[in-house]
Design a protein around this nucleic acid. Structure first.
Lengths: 416, 416
DNA sequence: CTAAATTTCTCGACTGTCGAGAAAAAAATC
DNA sequence: GATTTTTTTCTCGACAGTCGAGAAATTTAG
């Protein structure tokens, strides 16, 4: 359904555009903003003075004039305009980061996760404690926290910040919105971890290729298997999704998965699955909850020495991944695939299987093998994805709901 | 990448909005348009007088005034504003329809398809002849044809009107744009047939549910298997895709498919595959090019009588479909599935397999079985989808490129 | 024939963007 | 040191869009 357009909408959009350009390129002068946005100088003046009055951006102090002519006045986001808390939930710890509106990291710490299975309620309490702690340490008032951005492995609701299924809590749903609501007024968003990796890689790719960038998939290999897809929307921005790839059906009535279903991709390609297969344990054995990476390293070493059974385990994992990816490609357009996560260290062992699995489908035979690249530093990408997404959400919120409101409250503060 | 907004863009969008409302609800009065679009009466005046001057819409002749007060002046699209040719390519015929700008069918005929395999070049020539013929019969000048909307089964490029792969021509690509270009100036669009079915069903659903509508998949069963997905975009309009579902991998190293690959869904669920399986022909036999439906009806009759082998053939087909759908649902959100096409007459035999196949995946076990409905009249839906899509494309094109241009040429015509 | 009802049209106010040129401010030149 | 050049920022008037209010048009009810 189309909706009506109006002149105020135009201003809103262009304001968001200015903020996003500022975010992408750092502090910029009037003229540069005009170049990037293709808006006229007059419009930039109008928008920036408005944003400055609303205390969202500020003129940076004079830098030593580099050329001749009137020295440029750089504009940048005000750091103290608002803050963002990033919560990264991984299998053994939760990391809290406090970031200012300019994207600068202010404080960070990790807390170990209790591995007790009684956990969903207790876990929520731990997160609330962690959030309080990072706020206390920095002496920032709670109203200044505009957004809490959370990530986890598992399946996330597409509209609400609800963790629908996760490797740790299973089907014990966690609704972060209602869990934090009375205490925190900040908006809460929740994303799948691999989705953020894909978002970060997509943003990097768009920086390089510009309008040529079309789409990209990120495959994260580890204890579980995650997939994120970024696609360039037809209108504006990117469209991101994190399907339930790890638990897509690989083979009917196949090996038993941690989720209780048989034949999931993860039941062949997750770390525990490779271990199970390497030790020739029956495929319907309930899999280990947690597998030390050192254990897998040993198996990989044997496989590299030419032992048949461990090599076969990795090959089977590769096949499951390859078949799954080929199925994804049957449902989407052709796109490059970036492999991340701790499992990349075994890529040499997985590769042949992945390629063979991919090659078994019509689409790949027709369009050719997709480009596959291995990308390290998954943790950095997750955080980068958090920032990309969260800060642009903040920008939009500030402009949409905010400019007048904030302006008003600002003048009250000034008069007080 | 965001782009700048301007006041002219506002007018363009609102003009398109007015046209789309007119399209959805038929001839409307000033006030009604204002109600539907939420634009003010003054704006409606401005836009409609502009569109009227440009000869895109017209005031309809007075109808007997129904209430008291000043009688309403109904506005509607001018029929002669432009024309659309719809070309529906099916396995045994090509249907040509000429439609005016108001969506009214003017002329239609079908031509049998020559079944010779040497066909891509000859087929293109036949289409060109068909297009000329429908134009000649109606005495409409070629410039008045604004759009040629083509549909076929098979895989279609996402940006260009290129048929990448089809059950009939295989990988002999057909580029309709360049095939028609010197002769026809009209824009050419090409869509997968099942995509149009999905689009039509999505539009119907949106009529009923309004903003509650989220997404829907259409599964077409016949000689080949097609899938179309409609999703409500986050901003405006619907997002439609037609994945290569029929040739998604069902089972590695499985039955031989018409496409030459092993293990495609179609190699289990296409009509020829059911036949092959019912006659217990080895799965690596090169499948029949074309299967008379009567033949399949016989097998279905036997299955319904309780014969094991034919019943098993349908069950296997259902399993392949169910597994495939479950994989799709692992990659998208939960959505209802509408089954169309000639294969719906065997739904009673397929159903159990489909449901079992769906139930084998984690996502379905977690979210529950998706709603499945059987929808007849696939042909009507295809045409409806053509109209929906094509006419809104025309509306956009007219407004975007057109209003001033057409207005100018209109004044020239008037003065001449 | 007049009043009421209903729809359409018009006018002035407001908010946007844009181009051009004025103003500002530092480096280069005489 | 005064002037010119160069570069950036700011400002002003023109133009395009939407909106609300009220005027104009036109039919029915009484």
């Amino acid at each position: 359904m189309l909706t009506k357009s109006s002149t105020e909408l135009v201003r809103q959009r262009n304001s968001v555009l200015v903020l996003s350009v500022l975010r992408r390129h750092g502090a910029l002068a009037h003229t540069e903003i005009s170049d990037f946005t293709r808006l006229s100088s007059a419009t930039i003046s109008a928008i920036t003075t408005e944003l400055e009055k609303a205390q969202i951006i500020e003129k940076s102090e004079q830098q030593p004039a580099s050329g001749r002519g009137r020295p440029r006045v750089l504009l940048r986001q005000r750091r103290d305009c608002g803050y963002l808390i990033v919560v990264i939930i991984s299998s053994d710890a939760v990391q809290y980061s406090l970031v200012d509106y300019a994207g600068k990291l202010i404080d960070r710490f990790s807390e170990e996760r209790s591995h007790d299975p009684a956990g969903a309620a207790r876990f929520v309490a731990a997160v609330r404690a962690g959030l309080s702690r990072i706020l206390d340490r920095s002496k920032i008032s709670q109203e200044k926290v505009l957004l809490i951005s959370i990530s986890s492995k598992g399946l996330v609701d597409s509209t609400e910040p609800v963790l629908v299924w996760s490797p740790i809590f299973g089907s014990d749903q966690i609704d972060f919105e209602s869990a934090l609501r009375p205490e925190w007024q900040a908006k809460v968003i929740l994303d799948n971890e691999t989705l953020l990796v894909a978002a970060a890689l997509g943003a990097r790719e768009e920086m390089v290729k510009g309008a040529d960038f079309r789409s990209l998939a990120a495959l994260s290999l580890g204890h579980s298997v995650g997939l994120g897809i970024v696609r360039r929307g037809n209108q504006a921005g990117q469209e991101i999704s994190a399907p339930n790839f790890g638990h897509m059906l690989h083979m009917a009535n196949g090996g038993l998965c941690r989720c209780g279903t048989r034949g999931c991709i993860e039941a062949y390609a997750g770390f525990y699955a490779i271990l199970r297969s390497a030790f020739e344990v029956p495929l319907d054995t309930i899999p280990a909850k947690f597998v030390p990476v050192a254990e897998l390293d040993k198996i990989a070493a044997k496989a590299r020495q030419g032992h048949r059974v461990p090599a076969f385990a990795f090959r089977q994992a590769g096949l499951a991944l390859g078949n799954g990816l080929s199925r994804m490609l049957s449902l989407t357009e052709r796109m490059p695939i970036a492999i991340t996560g701790p499992g990349t260290r075994y890529y040499d062992l997985l590769r042949q299987g992945i390629e063979e699995g991919l090659g078994q489908s019509h689409i790949v035979r027709m369009e050719g093998m997709p480009e596959i690249r291995v990308v390290a530093d998954e943790q950095i990408l997750v955080f980068e994805g958090h920032l990309n997404r969260a800060l642009s959400v903040i920008d939009e919120d500030i402009v949409l709901s905010g400019v007048q409101g904030i302006q008003a409250s600002a003048t009250i503060q000034e008069s007080g």
